[in-house]
Design a protein around this nucleic acid. Structure first.
Lengths: 230, 230
DNA sequence: TTTTTACCTTACAGATTTATAAAAAAAGGG
DNA sequence: CCCTTTTTTTATAAATCTGTAAGGTAAAAA
C-alpha cells in the first residue's frame, strides 16, 4: 500500500515529468488538470498527499488549497505547492493557509520527491505512534502485522488486515465502498464495488467469531465504519 | 534503575509540566534552565535522555545539541527537541545534528512521554550486548558464530546464520524478502527474491528438527519474522 | 402489502503466494 | 585440481487468498 498522490497541474510536460518520478519512487498518483477536478476527486481518490500548481485554469491553486482545508477531514492532508516565480513565494508564505511546503519552478524532480518524502515522514510521525493502534478491544501492531480482539489473535488475510487497519486509523468515520477500494487496492485495478462487501464479511466473521458484538457498522447507502455503536 | 532524563527548559510552567509527567512515569530527571548548566551536568548526572528546548537563554538549543554530540561518549545519547513554531521544524530537520526526535509546542504531555519511551526503547535495543542474543529458546553467540535452540547446537550455513542473527536482533518484526536480501547480502548482488525462501526453508529445517514448534512466522504478502506465534 | 433497493451470505473457480525438492552453479578447503 | 559444502535457480506441489455471481434477507419506498 504505497502512498497516493494527487497531482494538480495543467501543463502536460510538467505533469508528465512529475508522474514519471512519482512512479519511479513507488508512489501511486492521479493527475488532474484543474482545481474543480481536484476537489471532485478528493473523496474518491483518497490521496495521502497533494501536489498543487499555483497557476491553474479556473480555480486558482490558492482557492483550491482553501477549499481543501475547509473540509474537516482534510485538515491534515499534506499539500505542497508549485509556484512559477520567486515573487510569488512571499504571498504564499504569508497566506498561511496551511500549506506544508512549496517549491518554485523550474525544480529538480529529485528535490520534489525528497520534499514529498520528508513531509510524508514528518506528518505520519506526528500522527502519533503508527506501530500500535488501539481502539477499544481492537489492537493492531503494524510492524509485527498482528491484530487482536482483546487477547484473541485475529487470523486475517492481507486485504482484511489492511481494511481493519484503515478503518481503525479512522475509527468511527464512515467510508464508502469506493473510498475503501481506492485506499486499499492499488490504483487502477478494476474491482466490483460489491467485492468490498465480501471482504467486510470475512473481516466481520473473524472479528465477531464468538458471538461477540459486531463492531463494524453498516451505514445504509453510505458505507462502513469501525464503531462500537452505542 | 529507572532512566534518567535531563530537561533543559527555561520556562518554569513547561518544565513543571514535564517534571510532573516524568515523575508519574517513573523517570528520574534533572531540570536545568540553560544550556551551560545542561553541559556542565552531563558528566555528573549521566542522563539516559535529554529533552532540550530550542529557545533557551544563552547558548541556543541547537548549539547545546552540537556540543553534546561533539563529545564521543554522548554520540548516542538520545535527544528530543522542543520547538515553538512549525516554521522551525524544517530548520531542525535540515541541520541533521543527530537529533532523535522533536515535538512542537504546545504539545500533549502524554505524547512527549510516548516519544521518550519509544526512543529509549529503540536505542536501548541497539546498545545491547551484541555478542549474545537470546530470545526464548534461541541463543546466538556472534563472536563464536554459534547458534543454539535450547541445548542443541544448530548446524547452519553462513547465510542461514546471518538470517537468524538478523531476525533475532529484530525479533517479532516482519521483514520482506527484499529487506532481508538487502540486509544479508552484499550490495547490488542480483539474487532472486525467491532465494530467500530457500534459505528460510533450510533455517527452519534446522531450527525445528525434532518436531519442535516453528518459530519462523510466514506473513503472506509481507515476509517473515522470528516469532513464537501465540 | 408490494415493490424496490441495498446489503448479506455462500460457494467456487481462478489467481497468487509460499513450501519443497532437486539439480545446476559457485565457492572454499585441502 | 578435486572434493565438499554452500548457494542459487528452477520446477512443481500445496496452501491460501481473491473476485464474482447468484440467491437470500432486510430495510425503505411506493
Amino acid at each position: 500500500m504505497f502512498p497516493k498522490i494527487l497531482v494538480v497541474e495543467d501543463d502536460q510536460s510538467i505533469s508528465d515529468l512529475i508522474s514519471l518520478h512519482l512512479k519511479k519512487n513507488n508512489f501511486e498518483y492521479l493527475v488532474v488538470h484543474n482545481g474543480e477536478d481536484a476537489l471532485s476527486h478528493l473523496d474518491t481518490f483518497m490521496p495521502d498527499f497533494v501536489i498543487l500548481d499555483w497557476m491553474i485554469p479556473g480555480l486558482s491553486g490558492l482557492e483550491v488549497l482553501r477549499r481543501i482545508r475547509n473540509k474537516q477531514e482534510y485538515k491534515n492532508l499534506p499539500i505542497l505547492m508549485l509556484t512559477a516565480k520567486n515573487s510569488e513565494q512571499d504571498k504564499i508564505i504569508s497566506f498561511e493557509s496551511g500549506l506544508d511546503d512549496y517549491i518554485t519552478k523550474p525544480f529538480l524532480p529529485s528535490e520534489l520527491i525528497a520534499r514529498v518524502k520528508a513531509i510524508l515522514k514528518r506528518t505520519s510521525q506526528s500522527n502519533q505512534d503508527q506501530e500500535n493502534l488501539i481502539f477499544n478491544e481492537i489492537k493492531i501492531n503494524t510492524v509485527q502485522k498482528k491484530a487482536y480482539r482483546g487477547e484473541r489473535r485475529l487470523n486475517l488475510g492481507p486485504t482484511e488486515f489492511n481494511i481493519l487497519f484503515f478503518l481503525l486509523k479512522n475509527k468511527q468515520r464512515v467510508f464508502s465502498r469506493e473510498q475503501i477500494l481506492n485506499k486499499i487496492w492499488p490504483n487502477q485495478v478494476n474491482v466490483e464495488l460489491r467485492t468490498v462487501d465480501v471482504h467486510i464479511r470475512r473481516l466481520r466473521k473473524e472479528l465477531n467469531k464468538n458471538e461477540e458484538k459486531d463492531i463494524i457498522r453498516t451505514v445504509r447507502s453510505a458505507g462502513y465504519s469501525l464503531d462500537f455503536d452505542e
